[in-house]
Design a protein around this nucleic acid. Sequence first.
DNA 1: GCACAATCGATAAATTTTTATCGATTCTTA
DNA 2: TAAGAATCGATAAAAATTTATCGATTGTGC
Lengths: 212, 212
Amino acid sequence: MKNGETAVSKATVSRMPAYLRYLKGEAGKGVEYVSSAAIAKDLGLSAVGVRKDLALVSSRPGKPRFGFEIKLLIEDIEKFLGYHRWTNAVIVGAGGLGRAILAYEGFENYGIHVIAAFDASPAKVGAVGGKPVYPMEQLPEIARRNHIRVAILTVPRSAAQEACDEIVAAGIGAIMNFAPVHLHVPEGVAVKYEDLAVSLAELCGECAGNQI
Amino acid sequence: MKNGETAVSKATVSRMPAYLRYLKGEAGKGVEYVSSAAIAKDLGLSAVGVRKDLALVSSRPGKPRFGFEIKLLIEDIEKFLGYHRWTNAVIVGAGGLGRAILAYEGFENYGIHVIAAFDASPAKVGAVGGKPVYPMEQLPEIARRNHIRVAILTVPRSAAQEACDEIVAAGIGAIMNFAPVHLHVPEGVAVKYEDLAVSLAELCGECAGNQI
DNA sequence: GCACAATCGATAAATTTTTATCGATTCTTA
DNA sequence: TAAGAATCGATAAAAATTTATCGATTGTGC
């Protein structure tokens, strides 16, 4: 209800990746149409909710008796999520996790180019999986030249805030933070916390319910 | 409102890790008390919401004029999130990401022991960062003997469902899935999707707003 | 010792999100 | 070609969540 553009709730957005994963799986099996009830059942949601979500992003309504056309729906969701707008990203911190992410090739499917990593330690400079690892000092220059908009922060917790400041100083406006630390950033910079341990702990909670 | 135990909303639970990160940061700076208004400002929430959240988990009410005692609050939140119940976990898939997570030491702070990794390829068997990598066949036996409750799945997408089935067959009831695939699991098994690419794409969306 | 300022907790209002109900559409099949 | 079944979309109701308001509490400083 902000001004007149979005009107799509945050909760709906957060379910889109799940739809996308599911639909791609079905498409891979050769299925062409899927009903809201089937999606709801497999994803553990309500059919009405699924219909409402899909109505918001689908360019064509579902067909009665068939359901939604999977191929079309995948395109619509990808478009909605912005996977067609290419974005350049870098990794800051070329330790184990940083190198693993640098070598990961799945980002290309989501409109993201991870072009390089940076590390303060000269020993880490070089290349991983065909992608370069630069010394930290070169971040501002390379970031600006390549229009980097996102940084993936994989340094140890003690180095996180300092690295964060350098990222902000380099003009990068979004940070995906793997360090388990709260980052102080100026207004306008987005931070997403990806604390693996917290995620895992959440899952444990779910799994154990609240029983011993 | 389920029966009479929880009464804590999902939204509240999801904010707890953010509080925890923030409070630990302040504690590290030597601060002893913090007001709901300060937390709200730094975390981009409303002060009333913060008070409501904290009232649900805090063992002692906040002091007027001072705020909440940080040390106590950290304990309460950790207790609430179950970081005191130790849980054993394993990694399935000892590729780059799996090895990076295996070497990561941050889990111990959250009540999680990652005791080993498993891989279908004999070439990967051995040890990483002092922790063993076993062949996949040994998963059922080791899982049962060590009361493993959580598996971290880091295999390539094409192997994900099969590995998932083996995990379930080994009696593990919770899976943290890094493969960008929808997993089919029997009722009662919890799956948490940690799709790095999706997370990153979400962040890009936030960063770009909805402008080009 | 007393007025003041800061903060909390509780109740109430507003908003958002989820769930339910129902008529309309479209394909299948006899 | 007409009846029937499955599914959709829209509207309405219910539930949950967020935000606002207000009196109560507790130190501080004069």
